[in-house]
């Protein structure tokens, strides 16, 4: 199957620091690609390059065969790449439902006249949006929380709301930046469940995650970064036994001692 997104040779440096160095990856529908690596390995920077927040110094990003390198963030989202953030970035004072409805922004375009006159067309659109947003909330397990301000939700629920908001943009690819950070084992189980369901729906998922057990359990493919460089890539079983990966995580001396 042809991958949805193909990335080749992406590099990004800040001053002298090479945050990402010629990384390649590809994401396919219904597959989960995980990106792992120690802190500061350049995982989030890579996401920022993919979503247009940073402009990569070199390399190219193709989405469904079309080059999107250097496209503005909102355009990238329109083209079908949605993301969540490592540190939750919800619209805190808006309700959970409204947060999800913000995600509808680019596919519910309607002329100003309809909005101002609150025409039947606008009413129908509003109704449909609300239903779709409620359905998404239900899908991530946030039934009944629609009218609460996003910032009043519990941490785990906020993480789920971010996923719902990203899904509302109707993406082809979902980039999840540490969705499981700070979750207890029970919450993690729910998260694995949710990601599994999204995968089954045919979404291409790219996941940054620190919980190894999560990564090993659900990934189809794993990419390991260290100091911005791609040091390994493959299926979970191979990665687990890769000496360079062990070295990157545990340091040189301990791997030498093994």
């Amino acid at each position: 199957m042809k991958p949805v997104m193909e990335v080749s040779g992406i590099s990004k440096s800040f001053g002298g620091l090479k945050a990402v160095q010629s990384v390649d990856l590809s994401a396919s529908a219904g597959k989960i690609l995980s990106i792992i690596g120690p802190n500061g390995a350049g995982k989030t920077t890579l996401f920022n390059c993919l979503t247009g927040i940073y402009r990569p110094d070199t390399g190219s990003i193709f989405l469904e065969g079309r080059e999107i390198t250097g496209t503005q963030p909102h355009e990238v989202c329109r083209l079908g790449i949605a993301r969540t953030f490592q540190n939750i970035r919800l619209f805190g004072e808006m309700t959970a439902l409204e947060n999800v409805m913000v995600g509808h922004f680019h596919h519910d375009e309607i002329s100003l006249w309809h909005i101002l006159s609150h025409s039947p067309a606008h009413r129908i659109l509003c109704g449909r949006n609300k239903e779709a947003a409620s359905a998404l909330l239900a899908r991530v397990g946030l039934e009944g929380a629609g009218d609460l301000p996003a910032q009043s939700l519990a941490y785990g629920l906020q993480k789920r709301l971010e996923i719902a908001r990203a899904l509302a943009t109707q993406p082809k690819i979902l980039l999840l930046d540490e969705p499981g950070a700070g979750m207890n084992p029970q919450e993690l189980g729910g998260l694995i469940d949710l990601i599994g369901r999204l995968k089954k729906d045919g979404l291409a998922i790219v996941l940054i995650e620190h919980h190894m057990q999560v990564v090993m359990e659900i990934s189809d493919d794993i990419l390991v970064l260290d100091h911005g460089e791609q040091i390994a890539r493959g299926i979970p079983r191979d990665i687990r036994n890769n000496p360079r990966v062990i070295e990157a995580y545990l340091g040189k001396s301990s791997s030498a001692g093994q």
Binding site: T51, H74, M94, V102
Partner: peptide
């Protein structure tokens, strides 16, 4: 909603299209 989202977090708003 877009305005309020921008007020809350510009980067996140852009990432939502």
């Amino acid at each position: 909603r877009a305005w309020r989202a921008i007020k809350a977090d510009e980067t996140a708003a852009a990432a939502m299209g």
